[in-house]
Computed example of a mutant assay.
Amino acid sequence: MAEQRQATYGQVQQHQPQNYPTDAIRGMLPEHSPSKSQIIAVVTLFPIGGTLLLLSGLTLAGTLIGLAVATPLFVIFSPVLVPAAIVIAFAVAGFLTSGAFGIIALSSLSWMANFLRKVGATSRTTAPEQMEQFKRRVQDTTGQIGQKTKETGQAIQTKAQEGKDRT
């Protein structure tokens, strides 16, 4: 043990910098000072952010107070309010659905008009060819759907057979 201490003290000790609490804080600070534009941005945005935060807090408090005051009224008038809310919800859904169908109809008519213009712009002999191609596509799709239906039916029959065989 004494030999180990002598060996340790006999070696040349290297100087290591001591760590002070302020060194950690200095490491977090930027090495360069902020520019004037950054300082102006912080000085202007800080009050605006504080004001908006204050307004959001006031709005939250007002909402909570209003809800506390209105809750008993909702309970008292709920036999009238619930059906009224349902009727209003259906009316809004109807208007939105009507608008969506209207937009779909207009876009479909626009697409058909553009398609017919293109067909009219090309030679008149290509329209029957396009119709034949369309008919072939429909027949192919119908054949594929029929094939899938047959395969699904066969799969159901085999599963039913397996279920019968197990019981």
Rank of each mutant, 00 (worst) to 15 (best):
M1I: 12
Q4G: 05
Q4W: 02
R5I: 14
T8M: 13
Y9E: 14
G10T: 10
Q11F: 09
Q11W: 05
V12F: 10
Q13Y: 09
Q14S: 15
Q16L: 14
P17N: 10
Q18R: 15
Y20I: 04
Y20N: 13
I25R: 11
I25M: 06
G27M: 14
G27E: 12
M28V: 08
E31M: 10
H32F: 05
S33C: 02
P34W: 08
K36G: 00
K36F: 02
S37D: 13
I39C: 06
I39G: 00
I40T: 09
V43I: 13
P47R: 02
I48G: 01
I48P: 01
G50Y: 05
G50C: 13
T51G: 06
L52W: 00
S56F: 00
G57R: 03
A61E: 04
I65D: 01
L67H: 09
A70P: 00
A70K: 11
T71S: 12
T71E: 10
P72Y: 08
P72S: 14
P72L: 08
F74I: 12
V75L: 04
I76T: 15
I76L: 15
S78L: 06
V80C: 07
V80K: 09
V80H: 05
L81P: 01
L81W: 01
L81Q: 02
V82Q: 06
P83A: 04
P83D: 10
A84G: 13
V87N: 05
V87S: 15
I88N: 10
I88G: 04
I88Q: 08
A89K: 03
A93H: 11
A93T: 11
G94Q: 05
F95P: 01
L96Y: 05
L96N: 10
L96F: 10
S98Y: 14
A100E: 09
F101D: 07
G102H: 04
I104G: 09
A105M: 00
L106C: 00
L106G: 04
S107I: 12
S108D: 09
S108E: 11
L109F: 08
L109A: 07
N114G: 03
N114H: 07
L116Y: 04
L116Q: 05
G120A: 11
A121P: 01
R124I: 09
T125R: 06
T125Q: 11
T126P: 02
A127N: 02
P128Y: 04
P128H: 01
E129N: 02
Q130L: 12
Q130F: 06
Q130Y: 06
Q130M: 13
M131N: 03
M131V: 14
F134T: 15
R136Y: 09
V138D: 01
V138T: 12
Q139G: 01
Q139N: 07
D140E: 13
D140R: 07
G143W: 04
Q144H: 07
I145V: 13
G146A: 11
Q147S: 11
K148S: 15
K148G: 03
T149W: 01
T149Q: 07
T149K: 10
E151L: 03
T152F: 07
Q154L: 12
Q154S: 08
T158W: 01
K159F: 11
Q161F: 08
K164G: 05
K164Y: 14
R166P: 00
T167E: 10
